[in-house]
Design a protein around this nucleic acid. Structure first.
Length: 938
RNA sequence: GCGGAUGUGGUGAAAUUGGUAGACACGCUAGACUUAGGAUCUAGUGCCGAGAGGUGUGCGGGUUCGAGUCCCUCCAUCCGCACCA
């Protein structure tokens, strides 16, 4: 029947395990036969395995990237073998800063850079043998994709959060209510406090109406504090600011209030918190999200300003300590500061405000040691005692958190205590029998005193009592506060999604759905304009595909816009009518397994939960949590090598001699270093500026490098690419070695030392099938009892370990199995065939090759059936009991299985070896755990 | 300062519910073979000790017949951060 089977032809040429030939063949086979193409199939149970898609950087993949992809690929293949219809897609998060930076430097359009990088990524990924369905690839920077990102933005813009319904609702319902009855009875998430009637509303012009609606929309324009770098003309992230200067270029950075798009994620704070109970994520990630959302219960209290008709509102978690208040501190940016500052202190306040505007938020918070602040000259009235309380400003209070104002209780809060000590302010003690002169007291069990109606109570009771009293006297109310802030959604960048927004009369207006996508216009340069407008402001009118109104929105969306919903697009990537059709979403549902780094704990993972909940509210999704199960793969760290340059010279000193000199450490490329020894000539070639450098070496003439484990990065010259390892050992070896390194969730330093062990294993696996001459040695004989036991033990361990994502022990199990089968000289098809299936998720190329050599019909084994474990092969007749005396293991005694505890005890005490250890003593107690252990207490 | 995680041989690690600590690999030592290789095979390898044996999972306590595993105190390292009022 076989007319031409390339497999068979190849058999004659392969004697050794020739991974290159095998991997090339099967890689091509899979691609040509669309082996991993997947379609919706209502007859099959679905399983959705997702990787966090990469940003295609110019540096290509390093060995850390594929770690998670390999794990998810193994799991996908495993689930396929179990009969699931597996969705396992891949794509690119292809908007981002590096391509834009490159464009600024070279003028090359970021789309070109991105295309080149994606091709390189694809090439590298293909070599590793992943079972991705590439027909579903998505790219966030493709207009076909970001059309729908813009569409979701529009939906957010057109929605507000109804507190009574506890969900997002169309803004049309809100305007309808405004027209009927004004906003008096509206319960929506907003900071807007003004009241208006239906008549008022109708009298407003469109611009006024819109500026009110902005306070309700889930995507809205508002003034936000940002790190503004005038020289770069852009806003910077906190970690792009170092000591008040931009990381790039070292330009000054200041805090500036800017009109920005924001996302009202705060509306979802409580649901984001509660949803954590319904998903299978690690406790540490959930804890990080909880801390980020930062729910705290307390009270907001109004302090009346003396000499002004106004109040300062503070939020406190400890309203019970209100009688200990001796001053109030405002954030320097607090809007009332200018108004209340007396002329006497105005100059100092201005100086202080200027100084804190130059500090980044992070610097302000990290610097605990330096206490700073300034008195404003103004006072508020204590709401209970009516005493005047001085108002200070201090940059330990943040404008963005709570109300930007705190009531300071130096006896109960250490920071307030430090502030009081530093400025010699009063510390009033309200705690019974506690000395607060040197230290604040935060013990909640201490009784309160000097506090009127709170005297004698402990914190928990006093908090309730204080809130009651505060509400009774109408000076405030009990309140839940969240640390979570609304997310700023504007970026002054080119390489991101344009907003589907234009402006008329300074009012934002939406483009129609039919006009989407609004694509990126071409620009002459990728830099901000001279007057600080974003790069898109450079585009000519005619270069926009749609241009409306007085001007377009010139900001672009942040990186997390596209990544907040990409997992939905994989379900239906080519749909032009909707972001994904409802029947496909219904079929694929939630992501069953999501694998990615924990660095996204509070960014991407929170934003995509937010968007999912929103789309659920608006009826577009049947679920409101995107990722059912999450695994965070640990980071693979690089091992960097260092050489030591003697200061102000071109002389380098070897590691062991460096203590005698003043040196600076220099990263050196790890490819120039072998076993910590530097190849000096290669180094000189690598860094021509040091071609005349001299080296102080060790007595044996070698130059020893120092080393350190740190993040893998191009700038640290410690990057190991998968390509060279695949070249040397093959993809199957690389896959298994990455898994063998350790538990997937743990971070670990990269070290290729052990890779030979894994490669050897695959060769031994090959040797079970093929002899030295290249002939098959597989037979049809019934396997021995031992061999069957080995097989079924392995099936059981593999199943258990895969189900708990313990990929490293899976590799060990396979090694043990091959060691045993080699010792048993087993070549039976009835053992080797199921074993090949067990191996196939890990080493798919080799497995396919062996599978076809076993005479299976031509085609891929990816839908073979995972072998079933049968406990009958594992039954033992006897067990070697470890016998302990007083908990110390001394000897083993073999006994038949199935004895009762009493029988075991009797036999043990009769045993002569056991008696030797008993030294004629009478045991106080004998513990018998059948099938486990015997412990004799003397 | 706060929050989270982790501490087991020379190295990566294993031990799923408290029950034989160190599986599996790397490395190292000795030997065999040889077409001299980054090959293969055999034996050994936690530490101390010639041995019997002792000892051993960051330190110190505790619970238990029995603790790497549970509880308390402390120490170290890594990661994150927002002085969160």
């Amino acid at each position: 029947m076989v007319i031409f089977d390339p497999n068979l032809i190849r058999c004659y040429f392969i004697m050794e395990y020739n991974f290159k030939e095998i991997e090339d063949y099967w890689r091509t086979f899979w691609a040509e036969n669309n082996t991993y193409l997947v379609k919706e199939d209502s007859k099959k149970e679905k399983f959705y395995v997702l990787d966090m898609f990469p940003y295609p950087s110019g540096a290509g993949l390093h060995v850390g990237h594929p770690l998670g992809y390999i794990a998810s690929d193994i799991f996908s293949r495993y689930k396929r073998l179990l009969g699931f219809n597996v969705l396992h897609p891949m794509g690119y998060d292809s908007f981002g800063l590096p391509a834009e930076q490159y464009a600024i430097q070279t003028g090359q359009h970021p789309a070109i850079t991105t295309e080149v990088n994606i091709n390189r990524y694809r090439e590298q990924l293909d070599k590793i043998g992943f079972s991705f369905d590439w027909s579903r690839e998505v790219r966030t920077s493709s207009p076909d994709y970001y059309k729908w990102t813009q569409w979701i933005f529009k939906e957010l813009y057109k929605s507000y959060y109804d507190i009574r319904k506890d969900k997002a609702v169309s803004i049309d319902e809100l305007t309808f209510i405004f027209e009927q009855e004004g906003n008096a009875h509206v319960q929506a998430v907003t900071d807007y406090t003004d009241k208006f009637t239906a008549e008022d509303w109708k009298s407003f012009d469109d611009k006024d109406k819109e500026s009110i609606l902005q306070n309700y929309r889930l995507a809205y324009l508002a003034d936000s504090w940002v790190n503004w770098c005038p020289a770069l003309g852009t806003v910077l992230a906190n970690d792009e600011v170092v000591n008040g200067l931009s990381e790039r270029g070292g330009h000054p950075v200041e805090q500036k209030l800017m009109r920005q798009w924001s996302m009202r994620i705060k509306a979802y704070a409580e649901r984001l918190l509660n949803g954590l109970h319904t998903i299978d994520w690690s406790d540490s990630i959930k804890e990080q999200q909880r801390n980020w959302i930062g729910k705290s219960a307390g009270a907001s209290v109004s302090f009346k300003l003396i000499d002004f008709d106004n109040t300062i509102e503070v939020f406190t978690t400890r309203p019970d300590t209100i009688f200990g208040v001796t001053f109030v501190v405002l954030a320097p940016e607090h809007p009332l500061v200018d108004q209340i500052t007396t002329s006497e202190f105005r100059e100092n306040v201005e100086v202080y405000k200027k100084a804190s505007s130059l500090k980044s938020e992070r610097d302000r918070q990290a610097d605990v040691k330096n206490i700073s602040g300034q008195f404003t000259g103004a006072y508020v009235e204590h709401p209970f005692t009516k005493e005047p309380v001085p108002i200070w400003i201090g940059d330990y209070v943040l404008a963005g958190y709570g109300t930007g104002a705190v009531m300071a209780v130096p006896c109960g809060d250490q920071r307030d205590h430090d502030f009081a000590k530093h400025f010699d302010l009063e510390i009033r003690n309200i705690f019974e029998n506690v000395d607060v002169n040197e230290q604040a007291c935060s013990d909640k069990e201490v009784r309160i005193t000097n506090s009127d109606f709170l005297n004698g109570l402990i914190a928990t009771d006093a908090i309730t009592r204080a809130i009651n009293e505060i509400e009774l006297r109408e000076i405030g109310k009990g309140k839940t506060n969240y640390r979570l802030r609304d997310a700023v959604f504007s970026r002054q960048r080119y390489w991101g999604e344009p907003f589907p927004i234009y402006y008329e009369n300074d009012t934002p207006l939406l483009f129609d759905d039919s006009e989407l996508p609004i694509t990126l216009p071409k620009v002459d340069k990728y830099l901000p304009t001279a007057d600080g407008e974003p790069p898109l402001a450079r585009a000519k009118k005619e270069d926009w595909d749609h241009y409306k109104g007085e001007h377009m929105e010139y900001n672009t969306m942040p990186g997390w816009a596209g990544s907040s919903w990409y997992f939905l697009r994989y379900m239906d990537p080519l749909n032009t009518e909707t972001f994904a059709s409802r029947d496909k979403i219904d079929y694929w549902g939630q992501v069953d397994l999501y694998i990615g780094g924990s660095e996204h704990a509070t960014g991407h993972l929170l934003y995509s939960r937010f968007w999912t909940k929103f789309l659920f509210d608006r009826g577009y999704l049947p679920f409101d949590e995107p990722f059912k199960k999450l695994i965070n793969q640990g980071m693979i760290l690089g091992r960097s090598s260092f050489i030591y340059r003697i200061k102000n010279t071109t002389q380098f000193v070897s590691y062991n001699q460096k203590k005698d000199y003043e040196t600076t450490a220099l990263h050196v490329d790890i490819s120039l270093v072998d076993n910590d020894k530097l190849d000096i000539e290669a180094f000189k070639k690598w860094r021509p500026e040091f071609s005349n450098a001299t080296f102080i070496v060790e007595p044996d003439g070698t130059y020893l490098c120092g080393h350190e484990v740190e993040k893998m990065s191009k700038s640290k010259y410690n990057v190991q690419t998968p390509d060279e390892l695949i070249e040397k050992f093959g993809a199957d070896t690389l896959r298994m070695y990455e898994m063998f390194l350790g538990p997937i969730e743990q971070s670990k330093p990269w070290d290729t030392k052990g890779i030979n062990g894994v490669h050897n294993f695959l060769r031994r696996f090959w040797r079970l099938f093929v002899d030295q001459s290249g002939a098959s040695i597989v037979n049809d004989e019934q396997p021995s009892k031992m061999a069957l036991k080995t097989l079924h033990k392995t099936i059981k361990k593999m199943t258990d370990d895969l189900d708990r994502y313990s990929f490293n022990t899976c590799v060990s199990n396979l090694m043990i199995c091959v060691n045993e089968l080699t010792d048993e000289n087993c070549h039976s098809k009835f053992v080797l065939e199921p074993l090949t299936i067990l191996l196939s998720p890990f080493a798919p190329h080799l497995s396919e090759e062996l599978w076809s050599r076993l005479g299976n019909p031509k085609g891929s084994m990816s839908h073979a059936v995972f072998p079933k474990f049968d406990s009958k092969y594992l039954e033992e007749e006897s067990f070697a009991y470890p016998v302990s005396f007083n908990g110390k293991m001394r000897l083993k005694v073999e006994l038949p299985m199935g004895l009762t505890a009493t029988e075991i005890e009797k036999k043990m005490l009769e045993n002569s070896d056991v008696q030797k250890w008993m030294e004629n003593k009478i045991p106080k107690k004998v513990i018998v755990v059948p099938g486990k252990i015997v412990n004799i207490v003397l």
